[in-house]
Design a protein around this nucleic acid. Structure first.
Lengths: 191, 191
DNA sequence: ATCGGATGTTGACATCGTACACAACCTCGC
DNA sequence: GCGAGGTTGTGTACGATGTCAACATCCGAT
């Protein structure tokens, strides 16, 4: 009707994307515990049941949030993978991985420890594998090297996020670069 | 009173331990999502408020559960650390770490991704560090080597648990042993 | 213009974590 | 013995959450 506030249209326009954005925002400020379906709906100015028109339930919303996180991760890794030197590039990827985790800890956790554990070898994996292939040799197959490199940075990120290791901010990224580089050189020399 | 059922004593006897055990059991069957304070109380045949006499809230119960998990982990790592050869021992520790995670996935998650993120360099860390010290050299300091080894197995475990990697059961442990061993040898040779 | 599907709303329910007040029990000092 | 006082468990209540069912509103194709 003509008299009503344009912000209060019955139809939201793009609720699905707004819900994902709201969930992401909530994730950043309050951690995973503060993420509620109702809260996201409230943020979008919509009723508690509206999200169910776009997601089958809470879990599916979280999966969508995680998916958007994987997109960002892939972009960050691709950007870091610039150096011509294989070991340097791998180290840069490692640092970028840890940086991503440190900057969006709750998102990172959700992406990996979340309820949706789909076996999706993501785009990020492909980027890493491409680099690892240039370093692999007889001592370590490509698959193992890729898995080792990924485990290394993933574990480092996880340990840092959970404060299992006294590193934070810049120091964390430095450690990631240093360790990934050492690992890459070890692998390259032993080829 | 003499007529009452002995199972229905007003005092439970050892509620605290029973609650931790109940939570652990629930964790194994239904994952972290199925873990509720009320549920644990119900399992123990006690009112919903009783747990608050032993824990300040849900978080503290979870911390107690996690602590019991760390105990078990340390025991498992210590048992695996038997071999005289440093690289072999490190590989065995890595396999044991992954095995632990695979056998009690929800517990493992709770221990690390749980709400309580205390900077406790646990006993498990000391065991690992001792081994790593025998392999470190000029190329990689003890601290970095320890951190790298831990990150490697921790990341591997995390990726396996979240099905990010197509490994399960025996294959997972094999991969852990293989990769940890390769890493340890690389480090030892480059010393 | 209208009809149907997509989108949102209201109301209700079970469950959860937790606060407050009260009851049963155990352990002392006497 | 026995009663005082702390310890442990109970009952009730409140607000928040995820989800179901039924209903309302809107937009686009016909």
């Amino acid at each position: 009707m003509s008299t009503s506030d344009p912000d209060r249209r019955y139809h939201h326009g793009d609720l699905r994307a707004s819900l994902v954005a709201a969930a992401l925002a909530q994730l950043e400020v309050g951690g995973a515990a503060a993420l509620s379906l109702r809260g996201a709906a409230r943020t979008c100015g919509v009723s508690a049941m509206a999200p169910y028109r776009h997601f089958s339930g809470k879990e599916e919303l979280l999966e969508a949030v995680a998916a958007s996180g994987f997109e960002d991760l892939a972009v960050a890794l691709e950007a870091a993978d610039a150096s011509a030197d294989g070991a340097q590039a791998l180290a840069a990827q490692g640092a970028a991985y840890v940086t991503f985790a440190c900057r969006q800890p709750a998102l990172f956790r959700l992406m990996f420890m979340g309820p949706g554990c789909g076996p999706d070898r993501s785009r990020a994996y492909a980027i890493l594998e491409r680099r690892a292939a240039t370093l692999a040799g007889s001592r370590m197959a490509v698959a193992d090297l890729t898995l080792a490199a990924w485990s290394l940075v993933h574990g480092l990120a996880a340990l840092i996020l959970d404060r299992r290791v006294p590193l934070a901010g810049e120091a964390a990224e430095d450690a990631a670069r240093r360790i990934t580089l050492a690992f890459a050189r070890l692998a390259a020399e032993a080829r």
